[in-house]
Simulated assay, not measured.
Amino acid sequence: MLVKNEVVENLDGTKSEYTYFDAKDVDVEAMLTEIYEKYWEQVTTTYVIQGAVFELFAKKPKKVGVLDGYLTVDTGDWHLHLCVGHNRANRASKEHKAKLQEIRQVKKGAFIHQTNGTCTPESWSLRLWNGNDEQMINIIFPNPYLTEDLKPQRKNPDWSKLDMWKELRKKYLGVVE
């Protein structure tokens, strides 16, 4: 599996270390199903663009499943659909169907370690992009610098909170910390 690392200096002074992967090489459906079935209470589902951040905290998901290539996570209060596999693109014309199917599906992902943050000195996440290189989703992992009620704890970080991050990177990318 080809994994590419890149360090980016962000405009706000933070640094992000990306560990990119091609979705063809990773079972994205299995990874997301594992995250939402096993770790649902520990992650925050977000969408981040400059000027807006949406954060969703899940109660226990009532359903995690796939239909027409779309992974659905349904908590009862909210749900999300994410194209992780082949979809029919039924409404597309014959000439645009293949392109639309390619655009909709997860094309690449990255595990991201960010440093020099304002709320916490570091953060860990998973981001996925579609075939148009548009961000689809960002999943924030447990942070050693935050208590269970998300209060800062810089003096006594709980490093065991990175176990999920390490386990998923090892299982799906072969990256050992």
Rank of each mutant, 00 (worst) to 15 (best):
L2P: 10
L2R: 11
V3N: 08
K4N: 11
V8F: 06
L11R: 14
D12K: 04
D12V: 07
G13K: 02
G13E: 02
K15N: 13
S16F: 00
S16D: 07
S16G: 04
Y18A: 05
T19Q: 13
D22Q: 00
A23D: 05
D25P: 08
V26A: 08
E29D: 09
L32M: 11
L32V: 08
E34G: 05
I35R: 01
I35N: 04
Y36I: 05
Y39K: 04
W40P: 06
W40C: 07
W40A: 12
E41I: 09
E41C: 04
V43N: 05
T44M: 09
T44C: 08
T45Y: 03
T46P: 00
Y47G: 09
Y47W: 12
Y47E: 07
Q50R: 13
G51K: 05
A52D: 13
V53Y: 12
V53K: 14
F54Y: 15
L56N: 11
L56S: 10
A58Q: 13
K59C: 00
K59E: 04
P61F: 02
K63N: 13
V64W: 08
V64H: 04
G65E: 14
D68T: 02
D68Y: 06
Y70R: 07
Y70A: 10
T72N: 14
T72M: 12
D74C: 02
T75N: 02
W78R: 02
H79G: 13
H79C: 09
H81E: 07
H81G: 07
L82K: 04
C83Q: 02
V84K: 01
V84L: 04
V84W: 03
G85W: 01
H86W: 05
R88M: 12
E95V: 09
E95P: 00
K97E: 12
K97M: 08
L100Q: 11
Q101V: 08
Q101Y: 06
Q101A: 12
Q101C: 09
E102G: 12
R104N: 14
Q105I: 12
K107S: 14
K108Y: 08
K108R: 15
K108C: 06
K108T: 11
G109I: 02
F111K: 00
F111T: 02
H113T: 15
Q114V: 13
N116G: 00
N116C: 01
T118M: 10
T118R: 09
C119W: 14
P121F: 10
E122Q: 14
E122K: 14
S123Q: 04
S123C: 09
W124C: 06
L126F: 03
R127L: 10
L128T: 03
L128S: 03
W129Q: 06
W129Y: 11
N130D: 15
G131H: 08
G131A: 10
N132H: 11
E134L: 13
E134I: 06
E134H: 12
M136L: 15
I137W: 00
I137C: 01
I139G: 03
I140L: 14
I140N: 11
P142E: 04
N143K: 01
Y145F: 15
Y145P: 10
T147L: 07
E148H: 10
D149N: 12
P152A: 08
P152F: 04
Q153L: 07
K155C: 06
N156I: 00
N156E: 14
P157W: 03
P157D: 01
D158M: 02
S160F: 00
L162T: 07
W165E: 05
W165Q: 01
K166R: 10
R169F: 02
R169D: 06
Y172P: 08
L173A: 05
